[in-house]
Design a protein around this nucleic acid. Structure first.
Ligand SMILES: [Mn+2]
Ligand SMILES: [Mn+2]
Ligand SMILES: [Mn+2]
Ligand SMILES: [Mn+2]
Lengths: 217, 217
DNA sequence: TTATTAATTTAGGCTAACCTAAATTTCTGA
DNA sequence: TCAGAAATTTAGGTTAGCCTAAATTAATAA
């Protein structure tokens, strides 16, 4: 059974891999808020346990074993977020932090009970897919709002859950999952957008728009 | 913020104190499944942090600070047991083990939410009192079934939750919290009892009877 | 009272997971 | 293409929490 720390390493390696970035010592160190030298140590240990392959100075890649372990944690994390949101009525800006701890101590039995109680949800409260027990993950066909062309009408499918303040902001302008909006204008100068939600028009920064993922409707 | 290990030490010291036993290095070592030498180390640390007072070779005693910390954990433990039982339908023989982990990572906010969802329960699924937020604990006026005189009619108020097999056994003979039963006969030879539950008469060992707590009705 | 036994503490060690500073390798741009 | 910068690894160290074996203190029973 991997330790809590090992689980967090594997999860973050999976995330970085998912984003297509090279998974380097420093990218991991950045994610985990740990010194690079410490990451190197752990990477060697994980490599010895066949969770990943390590080309020194180049980066790491999860093995199948590592991928499976990562997905188990991510499944627990997202189910738990769902539970906090649906059953205990926590806000979507609070749940990631709580789930960060619970993902490691939730038994498989508890995972199943929660899955049942929730009616076998497919996505978490931020629109991220909940991996299936067999290791399958449906990937979400969404592009960043910042890439939407002028005039486009779109629907929110996912919001990056890494930053609670972004989530609060997104709520505060009346956006949430599955909400529709249209892109009125793209400002060349700072790449910000003017969007229309319901009858309101709102200016939104690139930083925000890059973290809101949508599909065309 | 005390670590997980510190919290478990404080909790077990509280339990032993509660039972009226002297809290010695070896009794703690027994409860925690840790070598006595290690307990001595930790006790010195806790004493340095004023969680308890230590008379070398004699034993320990919680300070007010230690007592408060212990009760906070016990409250979380018992609320969580309640939640597992009521909301996720776990059996009363499974919940102690799960709660052992969750008690340490449940935030105060989550504690409150759960308390609300459950309707502010006063006892846990084993009949143990749930300490109030202010550090008050109602103590339960119950005596062991093994002390009940012949002919007595009693009601189950609490069952020791330390042994899952005992809990399974208690369920299997049709007993649960608040159930009534009467003592038909005390067998001198092995101190076992014949009890009547509903219309059934059942023989029950002393070991079992010592862990079932009742009040006269 | 004193000698044995039992409980406790001390001494010395280990592992996981972190750190900083120094050495090494790779990348980059003139 | 090669020197300086950036990234990575190595070296050496720390802390929490555990362990076993040895030394010390307390309890007990003849
Ligand atoms: Mn985590
Ligand atoms: Mn999420
Ligand atoms: Mn515990
Ligand atoms: Mn209990």
């Amino acid at each position: 059974m991997p330790s809590i720390n090992v689980e967090d390493y594997l999860k973050h390696i999976y995330y970085l891999q998912e984003e297509g970035d090279a998974v380097t010592t420093s990218s991991l160190a950045g994610q985990l808020n740990i010194a690079s030298a410490s990451v190197t140590d752990m990477v060697k240990k994980l490599s010895g346990q066949h969770y990943l392959r390590h080309s020194p100075y180049r980066g790491v890649q999860l093995t199948e074993k590592g991928r499976r372990s990562a997905l188990k944690i991510i499944r627990k994390h997202r189910l738990w977020e769902m539970f906090l949101s649906e059953v205990l009525h926590f806000g979507w800006d609070e749940i990631d932090e709580e789930a960060e701890k619970f993902e490691h101590i939730m038994s498989d039995k508890m995972e199943e009970r929660i899955d049942e109680v929730l009616g076998f949800p497919r996505v978490d409260p931020h629109g991220d897919p909940i991996p299936a027990k067999n290791g399958t993950v449906k990937n979400i066909r969404a592009f960043p709002l910042s890439d939407a062309p002028e005039g486009n009408s779109v629907r929110v499918l996912r919001v990056n859950d890494a930053n609670p303040e972004l989530l609060q902001y997104v709520s505060s302008i009346g956006l949430s999952l599955n909400k529709r909006l249209s892109v009125k204008q793209r400002i060349k100068f700072d790449k910000s957008l003017i969007i229309k939600i319901g009858s309101k028009e709102i200016a939104i920064s690139t930083v925000a728009a890059e973290n809101i993922f949508v599909e065309s409707v």
